[in-house]
Amino acid sequence: MSTVELKYHDQSTSSREVSDEEVPYPEGKLIVSRTDTSGKITHCNQSFVDMSGFEENELIGQPHYILRHPDMPAAAFKDLWDTLKAGNKWKGYVKNLRKDGKYYWVYAVVVPNIRNGKVVGYASVRRKPSRTKVNECIALYKTMLAEEQS
């Protein structure tokens, strides 16, 4: 376990414990959450609570990047926000950081919640990813991260 200083796109920072222990994705479950247009969590299901290691009241009102793992390149999240802001569906493989410092991989799909022609928030559903795709992403994200840090 090591302590890592994380810096987010809104310039806020947090000090988080990070370990190299993976928590397997539970069979058959979907992790569901909803955010407002700024990315703050407004709803999450029990699978989200269980996998994140946080209590529900620690998640509601927090920015979704509370789960951001330092191994994830910023470009992946920029692509997510650019896609959503264009009104489109985003799909991708994401390594998430749990409260206890462990991690879990997901295949995430995020859609804008459009009501009366206006985006009122975003819904995100995560499911069990293909291990082949995860292995491809481990290599890809490592390269992307190295480029961002160079």
Binding site: V109, R115, A123
Partner: peptide, 14 residues
């Protein structure tokens, strides 16, 4: 209506 709309959003992710 909102519960139904949210379920449709979730179906859209699937």
């Amino acid at each position: 209506h909102e519960e139904a709309e949210f379920m449709i959003d979730l179906m859209d992710t699937l």
